[in-house]
């Protein structure tokens, strides 16, 4: 009905072409740096220092990756990072689901206090309390342990409220048969609510995975010994510091770029497999704050 109004004129075609070109250039500023990094990671040691626009390796080589594991010994930090990420994410999901579930239960003494305890910390960002948090961790004797990294952010207001929203959408009638069978709150939570909140679990799980895999500030604050280094700390001295501070580079560019590639593979996998949860999570996050 409106096709007459939408008819394409020369002006519209020019606008459309300019518009698409603009977006293509933007996309290129995203794609070319990654292609460059990927290409250099697969070059030989000598080729990785060449001063050319490199989007494909001239001579394909995996020596960069071999050096990343042999000389840079990335396996240790990679393992530490995996431990912190996987265990932290699983515990985070469990604890936040439990807290979110409690918040949807009908009135119980102290519920208002619980709501305050959970929502106010959103206004106290971690960055602003790093000094006292460090002091607290030190009092607990957790400095220089992987446990400190698992413990930080083990629950978050964002995840608890997101789970609460999911639980609220579950009809109360579904739990009736369980309650008649004499199920207690824990059974109702674990057998009725949790299985129905899979999209919510996926959303908080993915955001937690990404933020834990990328965690940097907590490791800078709490970790001292090299055998406890997590990925981002190891990566920083590999990809940034060797470039900016030392004059003689001990690690070739191909190994440095291989470090970047290896560190983003898990994120890329999660991103590709679970994109829809990213979008829904972003929306919830923005609305909440």
């Amino acid at each position: 009905m409106y096709s007459r109004l939408y008819r394409r004129t020369t002006g519209k075609r020019i606008f459309s072409a300019v518009n698409i070109t603009f977006l293509m250039i933007l996309a290129m500023t995203m794609i070319i740096p990654f292609l460059n990094v990927l290409a250099v990671s697969f070059t030989t040691n000598l080729e990785s220092y060449e001063n050319t626009i490199k989007l494909f390796p001239r001579e394909f080589s995996i020596i960069g990756y071999i050096n990343l594991f042999r000389r840079v010994a990335i396996a240790g930090p990679l393992l530490n990072n995996t431990i912190v990420t996987v265990s932290g994410t699983l515990i985070h999901i469990l604890l936040c689901s439990m807290a979110g579930f409690v918040l949807v239960r009908s009135r119980f003494p102290g519920k208002t206090l619980a709501v305050v305890l959970i929502t106010v910390p959103m206004m106290i960002p971690f960055q602003m309390i790093i000094i006292p948090v460090f002091v607290t961790m030190r009092r607990f004797g957790l400095i220089d342990t992987l446990s400190s990294l698992i413990l930080i952010d083990i629950v978050s207001t964002f995840s608890i409220l997101l789970m609460k929203n999911y639980f609220e959408s579950i009809p109360r009638s579904l739990e009736e048969s369980a309650v008649i069978d004499g199920a207690n709150e824990w059974i109702v939570f674990a057998k009725v609510y949790l299985p129905l909140a899979k999209p919510g679990i996926a959303t908080i799980g993915i955001f937690q995975f990404v933020s834990r895999w990328n965690h940097f500030l907590p490791a800078v604050l709490f970790i001292n010994s090299t055998d406890k280094y997590t990925l981002q700390i190891a990566l920083k001295s590999l990809v940034v510091s060797s470039e900016l501070t030392s004059t003689t580079q001990s690690v070739a560019n191909n190994a440095r770029m291989a470090g970047i590639v290896v560190s983003i593979i898990p994120l890329l996998l999660v991103y590709i497999l679970a994109q829809k949860y990213f979008i829904s999570g972003i929306m919830v996050g923005a609305v909440k704050e």
Partner: peptide, 21 residues
């Protein structure tokens, strides 16, 4: 049971948000 289930979250926020502030 409800108190037990919310205890970890409450303890964390008290120890690592309110108290540090």
């Amino acid at each position: 049971l409800l108190y037990l289930m919310i205890l970890p979250a409450a303890a964390y926020f008290i120890t690592f948000s309110f108290f540090p502030l």
